[in-house]
Nucleic acid binder design. Structure first.
Lengths: 215, 215
DNA sequence: TCATGGGTACGACTTAAGGAGGGGGTCGCC
DNA sequence: GGCGACCCCCTCCTTAAGTCGTACCCATGA
């Protein structure tokens, strides 16, 4: 039997979820809570394996509650529920330690499957949410990274070496030692690189390298 | 009818997949290919909606092929297949534009469901893969970020403001103008912040702020 | 062939950053 | 009222960073 805690500020939503889940013979709803604070209390009292929790709630919201719940000794798997798939929620929820993210219009069958999936230790995201996550991951980050790489690509090999060392926080003297060139040459490379990249100081260059995700 | 292209270097795997998929009455396998190069040719010839492609193949591997396929005008949805859930593959595959990632031991029913899911425009990852993705996303990055935040938290409010401005690549003079304080004060704040953080120059501070993902 | 241009390298010079050591001021708290 | 923490500012000084001019190597091609 998978022990589930339902958290939502609307009683109607809670009873709807309860009905769906209680219909499964391997799932039991051990408690309900109507906000984050109650949820935390309910977790320690009822020790559920899975928590289905709304994102938006009065007093303490689902994200904060999820974070708190995941700091307890043997935390249950937290699945966030939401009406809309707002991606800032997704990222924050995952960082808060949630292992699932479902839309409230998920069909009963899928809901039960999701509960079983997370109870089995797997992560589970509704397709639109997953798609959004991938988009964020693969595309939203990529343009800045790719632009940064492209810009760095305009530098000569030696300039790139120097600029990467700059981005590690090294001084010109340290770079000179590391790359076996005089400090004057390091400065010349940095200066030429800054000119090519249209930057005014080495901190900006360091930021660019970090955006390019090249250490 | 969902038109599918199967790409794998082993004929046995191809016929296995074909058998599973052809058993579904809404899916048709329009072609097979045995490596990445063939896959690209087959995509332009047969215009499939979904491509099921092995990651590891001779000549051109699945990741490279996926990237090339996604550069074509109306690219099909690419689902990567793999035996093991090596996460470097996952990240690279998603960056290459793949919208799905399945393990080869996926049950027939799930395989068909995955094909329908991606054909419907959704993303689809096998649970272990998804879990790994989330872990990478939510946890592997987190420690460094949290440590950086903790360290920055030791600074006073004003010091933090100054250091964040530093991390944007501003000079002391610019920071002074922006925060309405003299350049001397900016220097004093920077200097004390560097001392507290045990750093030797502003580039290192900038890196720290970027690790903290603030700004 | 020798002229040209890009890459690399250096030193001299100017400007920015950082350190040391102060002096005030406000605010909250014992 | 004294104390500590934070904030703001200053001067003097040292060191680091950035700019400019120049020189050399070497490939490319007119």
């Amino acid at each position: 039997m998978i022990r589930v805690l339902i958290v939502d500020d609307e009683a109607l939503v809670r009873s709807g979820l309860r009905m769906i889940l209680e219909a499964m013979d391997d799932i039991v709803v051990v408690a309900e809570a109507s906000d984050g604070a109650e949820a935390i209390a309910a977790v320690s009292r009822h020790r559920p394996e899975v928590v289905l929790m709304d994102v938006r709630m009065p007093r303490m919201d689902g994200l904060a509650a999820a974070a708190r719940i995941n700091q307890t000794p043997h935390p249950p798997k937290v699945v966030m529920l939401t009406t809309f798939d707002l991606d800032e929620y997704v990222n924050r929820a995952l960082r808060a330690g949630a292992v699932g993210f479902l839309l409230k219009d998920t069909p009963p069958h899928d809901l039960a499957a999701a509960v079983r999936t997370v109870a089995a230790g797997h992560a589970m995201l509704a397709p639109p949410v997953l798609k959004r996550l991938i988009d964020t991951f693969a595309e939203r980050e990529a343009p800045r990274r790719d632009l940064a790489r492209k810009r760095l690509g305009e530098l000569t090999a030696r300039e790139q070496e120097v600029i990467r060392a700059v981005a590690r926080g090294l001084s010109n003297a340290e770079i000179g030692r590391e790359l076996a060139m005089s400090q004057a040459t390091v400065k010349a490379h940095v200066s030429r690189a800054l000119g090519k990249l249209d930057l005014t100081n080495r901190v900006q260059a360091a930021i660019l390298v970090h955006d390019a995700e090249l250490l």
